[in-house]
Design a binder for these strands. Structure first.
Length: 568
RNA sequence: CGGGGCGUGGCGCAGCGGUAGCGCGCAUGGUUUGGGACCAUGAGGUCGUGAGUUCAAACCUCACCGCCCCGACCA
């Protein structure tokens, strides 16, 4: 491609609205064009890169036993009512009506349709396993798009679905997909980390995310320094600091005027936070739930949601709290009845706790179970923290921000049972198909790659996903001899299968061209100029690193390029 | 949805009651050409939309719309 013909407009200044590097550089380099919040046009540079990412994904999915299909974006609302996900997606679902006023959906994902297909195409154990996949546009009306292509409302996603006869089959499919994902990230030059993840409202047993470490990421993960444990903060477990268990002391009421928070309580009575129990009230799908956890820890609402199997969890309002006769600021499980009560297992790690007295401005000292309160529902609902020991090996956990570039789930039988996808096993028993699903956001992967690979000058594309391999910069092109040589080299390289972008603009200064080359970030930069020509050579330089250009005799250019592209 | 910010030529911004400006970019001509050159000439804007106040509104008032950031939420 000749730069003079390319649909792009590089910008000299930073676009005002872009803060994250990938967003800024994609706009500056003229790769994308925003049409609305979270809706982008992909211009040729971005599109070439996206297609390379897709090609890598296709190769790996095919190698892992996948078969490519194409499912519709436009779907009847009925299907989403039937699976119950119209409610689950809520406002995130793009909806519309056809001319007969029939409610339709712009699909945010495709479990429903794939299940529908499976109903007729999977009838016997002989029809299993199957792994259909597609790369296709998804629509999600996100409450807030952000970071350019990081979070958008219309985006291309590779979604795969595994269908197996039993749990062992699912495990095998899941592992095959996980390995395909690892290959994909490696080939894209991305050191993504596979972490334990929450599987959401409709999750099965296992779920993993692939997170690319990046300060601009939306997710936080905890990773063990000593072993391979890594988990999304939403899911992470850690060893909670334990306290020596003392003999129970007598329960004692203490007046605490004006004290509402744990911090105030500790200040007022000179007690450490881990000697207190904190009370938090939630509304879970309308039911008020009393939650208690040791005072030095925080509630992980995702864990709590998963434990309660709640669709909608939020803090209870003041009115709800009052209606449930809870005393905000002085509540505890001591003497509490008639309300669901969930405790974090940290209440077992300690004794003689300072707790609320369920009377205004009053607390109790030396609360102990089972004497003073009962343990009905005890589980881990604590937010793990950086520095806490790993549950597997005891080494401290480190926190890391990152971008979610893939998510895989063991769905189990939720969709097959809800939508009726059954097969007959070898003994003639009717069984639900066991499913998994596997997603990669293609555009987000590109954005993540740029987040991972850039400097102050611009993008530094990993070779496998660069829009072109080589950026030919022609200088002194008003001189016939130079421009002829440059044109000839450009043709020659394309004939040799090397993808080139050729800056053939005759009237741009060298500085402009070099800066554009740095901004677009193709792996190799070739300079052809009067000076280079005098030496009978071409200058070749990697975009990554500060290498001085290598002077290469014209006839050796192809082989040098191949060598440098393959990492040599 | 809560909080904050911003809507003025393609981009970045100034102007904040009295004739719409600057820099970059763009076009034409000329001089330049190894890290964002220079001179000259020129094109390009219903100042987000709608109401209102005023002799007069880009500017003041109100409402709405849009975009960005933080949070909530989210596969």
């Amino acid at each position: 491609m000749r730069f003079s013909r390319l649909i792009t407009k590089t910008m000299r200044r930073d676009p005002a609205e872009a803060e994250t590097p990938s967003h800024r550089y994609m706009l500056k380099a003229g790769m994308v064009f925003q049409v609305a919040a979270g809706v982008y046009s992909y211009l040729p540079l971005a599109w070439r890169s996206l297609r390379k990412i897709e090609a890598i994904i296709r190769e790996e999915m095919d190698a892992a036993g996948g078969q490519e299909v194409r499912l519709p974006v436009l779907q009847p609302m009925e299907l989403w009512e039937e699976s119950g996900r119209r409610k689950a997606f809520g406002e995130n679902l793009f909806t519309l009506q056809d001319r007969r006023r029939r409610p339709m959906v712009l699909a945010p994902t495709h479990e429903e349709v794939i299940s529908l297909i499976a109903k007729t195409h999977v009838q016997s154990y002989r029809d299993l396993p199957r792994i259909p996949y597609q790369i296709q546009t998804k629509f999600r009306d996100e409450p807030r798009s952000r970071g350019g292509l990081i979070r958008v409302r219309e985006f291309d996603m590779k979604d795969a679905y595994s269908m197996d006869a039993d749990a062992e089959g699912l495990d095998a499919s899941y592992e095959a997909m996980a390995q395909a994902y690892r290959n994909i990230y490696r080939r894209c030059g991305l050191p993504a980390v596979m972490v334990d993840a929450d599987s959401g409202a409709i999750g099965g047993r296992d779920s993993h995310e692939f997170i690319l470490p990046a300060s601009t990421g939306e997710d936080t993960i905890l990773r063990c320094a000593g072993c391979d444990y890594a988990a999304n903060l939403e899911k992470a477990e850690a060893v909670k600091p334990s306290l020596p268990v003392e003999d129970p002391l007598p329960l004692k009421e203490v007046s605490t005027p004006g004290v509402r928070t744990i911090a105030e309580l500790c200040e007022f009575l000179g007690v450490p936070e881990n000697r207190t129990l904190k009370a938090v009230f939630y509304s879970a799908d309308g039911e008020i739930v009393f939650v208690t956890i040791r005072g030095d820890l925080e509630v992980n609402e995702v864990k709590l949601t998963t434990y309660l199997k709640a669709k909608d969890l939020r803090l209870a309002t003041e009115e709800e709290t009052r209606a449930a006769s809870l005393v905000a600021g002085s509540a505890s499980a001591v003497g509490l009845t008639g309300i669901r009560c969930v405790m974090d297992d940290s209440v077992l790690l300690g004794s003689n706790f300072l707790v609320g007295a369920n009377k205004p401005e009053t607390h109790l000292q030396n609360a102990n179970h089972p004497r003073d309160f009962q343990l009905e529902e005890v589980t881990d609902i604590a937010l793990a923290e950086e520095g806490q020991p790993c549950v597997k090996c005891g080494e401290p956990l480190e926190a890391l921000r990152g971008i979610e570039v893939g998510h895989i789930f063991k769905l189990g039988t939720f969709y097959s049972e809800t939508l009726g996808v059954y097969y007959l096993d070898s003994e003639g028993n009717r069984r639900p198909v066991i499913m998994g699903c596997y997603g990669i956001g293609v555009g987000r992967l590109l954005a993540a790659a740029i987040e991972q690979n850039h400097d102050e000058q611009g993008i530094i594309f990993p070779a496998p996903i660069a829009p072109y391999h080589v950026h030919i910069v022609g200088l002194n092109l008003t001189e016939e001899a130079v421009s002829q040589e440059a044109d000839a080299l450009y043709d020659r390289l394309w004939d040799a299968g090397i993808e080139c972008l050729y800056d053939d603009r005759p009237d741009e200064s060298a500085g402009v061209k070099f800066n554009d080359a740095d901004l677009l970030g193709l792996p190799l930069r070739l300079v052809i100029s009067r000076r280079a020509l005098r030496n009978g050579a071409v200058e070749i330089r990697r975009r990554a690193g500060d290498d001085k250009p290598v002077l290469t005799p014209s006839q050796d250019v192809e082989s040098t390029i191949r060598e440098m592209l393959s990492g040599g």
